[in-house]
Simulated assay, not measured.
Amino acid sequence: MRWLEAAARLASRARAQSCPNPAVGCILLKDARPIGRGWTQEGGRPHAEAMALKLVGEGASGATAYVTLEPCAHRSDRGSACADLLVEAGVARVVIGAQDPDPRTAGEGIARLRAAGIEASLLPSPQVENSLAGYFTRARHGRPFVTLKLAMSLDGCIALADGSSQWITGEEARAHVHSRRAMNDAILVGGATWRQDRPRLDVRLDGLQDRSPRRVLLTRGIPPDGVKVINDPAQIAALGDVQYLYVEGGAGAAASFLSADLVDRLEIYRAPILLGKGMPALGDIGLQSLAAAHGRWQNVESRQLGSDSFTAYRRTRQEA
């Protein structure tokens, strides 16, 4: 299991760069020693398995491949099917973290490996599932995986009463936000935030400036140049090949996505300050009772960022 988890960590390097393909990781082991690794490259090709196999060449014969997603079984104009590449390389075993929901591969990749005499096993892993959250959400629900980010004071405010919000959190927390932006295909704010702050919505970290996400605005107003506009949260389904959407503000947009139950991950940055009569982080999200508020969110990550705290929560849902 630990090698699949390591492959899932490798896959994170491809996130927001691999579209329209999923971000996949692969590790090759021989004699209990890693000999090769790979992850999906920018634009979706080459795939993780192809990268790892190219690295080791003939050394892949007899090796075990740990791959986060079932090796593809369909050939495209941009490369051979990964199931075929693994067969040609002579690997002895393939351990797979998740089956591919793509009907061109679903089950066929595993079947092709087994037909060639390769031991192929499916070993589901929460870490692998998380690493492919955007791909699975798009495949299962026809929309991107949505992360809602809120930066607030101890008393739940995102700005002073006059709308001043720069800055609620410190430099370390803001740098962390930029790293999170780089992990998403698109970033969304509401019309009020756009008019008040004119945010750049880019990535301003050394070496990652080229990973700024596409900009999306939730408004019924006139679309600004270079910004995609949607009028309703449900329209995120039409954002093309976007697998990961980062909703960054403000209170109205956040409440709209929560009311529509479209938030999959909630990330809260909390500064050790009190604002008193400030702007609340959320508007009405449509809850009718306290009972309905419980059991929806599971804490999955916590850390300290300078003087600020960061906590992430996963929306708990029963998958169909």
Rank of each mutant, 00 (worst) to 15 (best):
A32C: 12
L201F: 06
A175V: 00
H47I: 01
I187G: 05
R314I: 03
P46V: 10
R181F: 03
G134S: 02
H178V: 07
R265Y: 02
W167A: 14
L132Q: 00
T219F: 05
T316R: 14
D197Y: 02
R195A: 10
L122F: 12
R104S: 12
D241M: 08
R195K: 13
A7K: 05
S256K: 08
V263Q: 08
R37H: 11
D206V: 15
I236G: 09
D225I: 12
P34H: 08
P223T: 11
P223S: 13
S80I: 09
H178K: 08
A192P: 00
E49F: 04
D225A: 15
F145V: 00
L69Q: 01
S61A: 15
G207N: 07
A106L: 15
D155Q: 08
S309L: 07
S18F: 06
A65C: 15
P233N: 05
R198C: 14
D155T: 05
I168P: 00
S259Q: 12
G163H: 06
A312I: 11
S289E: 12
R314Q: 14
G156F: 10
A89W: 15
P280M: 01
R214H: 13
L150C: 09
A186W: 05
V216F: 01
A292Q: 15
Q196Y: 12
A32I: 02
C72E: 09
A92Q: 09
G278H: 04
A192W: 06
G249D: 07
Q235F: 12
G107Q: 10
S125W: 12
S131W: 11
A238T: 09
A32Y: 08
R317Q: 10
R214V: 09
S307Y: 08
P34K: 09
V247G: 09
D210Y: 06
D232A: 11
A133N: 07
S164P: 09
E119C: 14
S76I: 03
A7R: 11
Q304W: 10
G97A: 08
L274G: 00
D308W: 00
A14P: 02
D102T: 03
A251Y: 00
A50P: 00
R15D: 04
A253D: 00
N130I: 14
G25A: 08
P124C: 05
S289K: 15
A92T: 04
S164K: 13
D100S: 13
R138D: 01
T147Y: 01
A173Y: 13
Q17F: 06
C19E: 02
R265D: 04
T169N: 14
N21G: 14
V128G: 11
G190I: 02
A106S: 11
L154A: 05
Q209K: 10
G207R: 11
V216S: 04
R180D: 02
N130E: 15
Q196S: 13
L85V: 02
E319W: 11
D206S: 14
L217T: 06
G240K: 07
D261K: 12
S131H: 11
G278E: 10
E129C: 05
L205V: 03
G38L: 02
W3A: 12
G252T: 05
A11D: 04
P199F: 14
P224H: 09
T169S: 09
G25C: 08
V67D: 02
H176C: 08
A73Q: 05
A8R: 05
D31A: 15
A120F: 10
P20R: 04
A14D: 03
I222M: 11
R315N: 07
D232V: 01
M152I: 01
T40I: 05
G295K: 10
N299R: 15
I96G: 02
S165F: 06
L10V: 07
D31M: 03
A175S: 07
